[in-house]
Design a binder for these strands. Sequence first.
DNA 1: ACTTTTCCTGAACTATTATTCATAATATGA
DNA 2: TCATATTATGAATAATAGTTCAGGAAAAGT
Lengths: 211, 211
Amino acid sequence: MANITITRKEKEKTRHKAEILQAALNLFSDKGFGNVSMQDIAAKAEFSVGALYNFFAGKEQLFGELMGDCSDRIYQMLSPIFDSEMPDDEKIRTYIRAGVRLLEDNLKFIRLYVSQYNSLTPAPTHSPKAAENMEIKLKEKLLNTIKSGIRNKLFRAVDEQTATNALCATMEAFVLKSSENFDKAKIEQGLKNIETLFVDNLLKNEGRSNA
Amino acid sequence: MANITITRKEKEKTRHKAEILQAALNLFSDKGFGNVSMQDIAAKAEFSVGALYNFFAGKEQLFGELMGDCSDRIYQMLSPIFDSEMPDDEKIRTYIRAGVRLLEDNLKFIRLYVSQYNSLTPAPTHSPKAAENMEIKLKEKLLNTIKSGIRNKLFRAVDEQTATNALCATMEAFVLKSSENFDKAKIEQGLKNIETLFVDNLLKNEGRSNA
DNA sequence: ACTTTTCCTGAACTATTATTCATAATATGA
DNA sequence: TCATATTATGAATAATAGTTCAGGAAAAGT
C-alpha cells in the first residue's frame, strides 16, 4: 500500500478533474456563471452530474478552484518581471508589454472575468476572491517598483499610490476591452500608447534632470 | 375627460413608482440584483408583488429603469462641465473634483454598480446598458476636451484616446473603491492626487514651452 | 347611492437547478 | 475468479423566485 509513486488511477483522477475545469471554463466564459448549470458542465465534460460532486463540493467550489488556477497562472507569468534585475522603468515597460501574452494565453479566463463584470447576479458567498488577490499582489509589486524608481530619480516624484492605481486601472480596462475581440496588432499598439503615456510622459523625467 | 392638468391620481401613481424604485435601489445596493426578490422589493415598498407588475413589466425592466434614472442624474450633473466656457485644463480639473459630489449624491447607485462588479451572475438579456451609455457619452466629451487642449498647446501631444481611457479608468476605479466607505477628506485628497498626476504632470507642459 | 374603472392583494403556478443517493459499473488485489 | 473498494450514473428531491390572475378594495364619475 506504500504509495511510492502516483498510481495510474490517481493520474486519471487528476486528468478528469482538469477536464471538468476546462469544460467549465469554456461554458462560464461563454455564458457567465449564472447561466451554466451543473448539468451543462457535466454534459460538456462527458460525466454525470453526480460525478462532479466527487471532485468538487459544489458549483461555487468548482468556480473558485477555476478562478484560483487561472489567477495563479497569471501571477506566475507576471510576478517574475518585478523580481528581475531590470531597472525599474524597464520593469514597468516589460509589465505593460506582457499584456499581449497575457491576453493570448488567458483569453477565456479574461472573458469569464468580464462576464462577471456586467451581469445581474445572485452574489452567493462571495467567491471570486482568487483573482482579486492576484491583482493585489501584483499591484503591491508595481507600487514598490514605482517607489524604487522615484527614490532612484528615474521617475518624477508623483504620488506612488495614485500612479500605481492609475496604471493598474488603465491596464485592466485595456485588457478587459481587448478581450472582446483579440487583435494582436491593435493590442500591441494600445500597449505601446500606454507605455508612452505612463513611462515616457508621466514617470520619466526625459530631458529635464531638474532640481 | 380632457386632461388639462395632472390628476391627483396620476401624481400618486408617479409617487408610488418612485417609492418602489427607491426601495429597489436600497435593496439592490445592499445585496445585489440576484439576491433581491420581487417579494423583497414589494415588502420594502409596502406593496404587494402583483402591484409591482402594474408599474414594471418584470424584474429586469424595473432594474433597467432604475439604472437609467440614476445614470441620467449623473450625466446631468457632469455633462455641463464639458459644455461650459472654461479652458480645457480647468474642465478636466473640475470634472475630477466633481467626484466628491458624485459620490455624495449617488452612493447607493454606485454601490449597486459595484455589487454587480463582483458577483456570480445569471446574465439575463443584458440589462445594464444605461450606465454604460452614460459613461460612453461622458468619455466622448472628455476625449474632445483633451483633443482641444492638445490643439491649443495646453497639453502635451499624448495619444488622446489613451489619455482619455487612462483618466476614465482611474476615476472609475477610484470612485468604486471610495464607495466602500465614504470619507470626504480622503476622497478629496485622492482626487487631488489624480488631478496632479494627470493634469499637472501628464497633460500640462509646465515650465517647458517647448518646440 | 350606484356603477365603473382603476389599482391592489397574495396565494397559486411554473420553471429552474443545485444537490443527493441508491444503484450500477469498473477497477484493484489476493 | 471472487471480494472489495472506488468511481460513475441520473432520476428524484427540495428550495427558490419570477410571474399570473381571480377576486377585493378604493376612488372616480354620474
